[in-house]
């Protein structure tokens, strides 16, 4: 009898306690379901419609994707992304690893040097783009500096050269992100078991050899994370293009993110823009899914 009385007395509070966590999480659940997945679905739907300046829900099937495939500018943007992404990722990785290994040699003022390598990561891509646009200014930037310093014949006008403008984006992006790769790898290097390295040294292995054969191969997961984050940055790169080249000259330095923005919000091609956004999502998923898969598998093995 008494136990019944107790439970009935406690239960409202108890029930509240049981529901409180879910209640607290509820707004975020709503945000995630609607703002993430609902909106993705919505964009997906729009990509099958003939929407132009305003959303319309007239079904046109795969027509927008077909138009995208026939669109020269889209192909330029996609090829630029491959070129930009490939160069940006590999150069950032090489530079970042090199700097991390050098910084790992018990360097005096290491913290200070690290701060210098990483500061570009703190500023906006718009600021980075503005700065590099000025540095690469044909006529007044590095172009002039090099000539003033005695290299008379040098012309450095990549920013207005349709074939080379993508390299300008690469330079700026590498400047911004390579310090971050350095930081990732430095953290990884600090976690490497020092006794293995000492043993190799006792065996007479040289330092570069130890790093190439033993230390770096053990940092596989860090490589993986770095590549994933860098490719994510590359696919989303919009600010840098907007501020440095606005896609120009012509549309020679367009990237998919820029293409999507231009068609959706300034050229009144909403359906086409939605289709390009869906393809961008596809690209991110293509990188993300293997990553998550390996992460989950790794956890199961632990």
């Amino acid at each position: 009898m008494s136990s019944v009385a107790i439970t009935s007395k406690v239960s409202p509070l108890d029930a509240l306690q049981r529901w409180l966590p879910k209640l607290v999480l509820a707004p975020t659940m709503l945000i995630v379901l609607v703002g993430f997945y609902g909106y993705i679905l919505w964009t997906f739907l729009l990509s099958f419609t003939s929407s132009r300046f305003m959303p319309s829900y007239k079904w046109v099937g795969l027509q927008q994707y077909q138009r995208l495939m026939d669109n020269d500018r889209w192909w330029v943007a996609s090829k630029n992304l491959m070129l930009f992404g490939g160069l940006f990722i590999s150069i950032s990785l090489i530079l970042g690893v090199l700097l991390a290994v050098l910084l790992d040699q018990r360097i005096r003022r290491e913290g200070f040097i690290r701060t210098i390598f990483l500061y570009p990561m703190a500023i906006s891509m718009i600021v980075t783009g503005t700065a590099w646009k000025w540095l690469l200014n044909p006529g007044l930037g590095l172009d002039k500096l090099l000539r003033d310093w005695g290299w008379e014949g040098v012309r450095f006008d990549w920013l207005v050269d349709t074939d080379r403008v993508v390299y300008c984006l690469v330079i700026a992006a590498v400047w911004q992100a390579s310090g971050f790769v350095m930081a990732l790898f430095l953290a990884g290097l600090r976690g490497v078991d020092q006794s293995i390295i000492r043993a190799a040294q006792v065996d007479g292995a040289s330092l570069p050899n130890i790093y190439l054969r033993i230390v770096l191969p053990s940092l596989g997961p860090v490589f993986f994370s770095a590549v994933m984050i860098l490719s994510h940055i590359a696919i989303k790169s919009f600010d840098l293009v907007a501020s440095m080249t606005a896609g120009g000259p012509g549309y020679s330095s367009d990237l998919p993110a820029m293409f999507m923005y231009a068609h959706t919000f300034t050229r009144g091609q909403m359906g086409l823009g939605a289709a390009s956004a869906i393809l961008m999502l596809g690209a991110v998923l293509a990188i993300l899914v293997p990553y998550l898969y390996s992460e989950l598998r790794g956890k199961r093995h632990d």
């Binding site: 995630v32 997945y37 909106y39 919505w42 964009t43 993300l288």
Partner: peptide, 22 residues
């Protein structure tokens, strides 16, 4: 739910821009 949320860290925002602006 955490897994669903985590995906948001990698979401290319282009894919939600239109519905968000509506």
């Amino acid at each position: 739910f955490f897994g669903l949320l985590l995906f948001g860290c990698f979401l290319p925002f282009q894919v939600v821009l239109l519905p968000a602006s509506f």
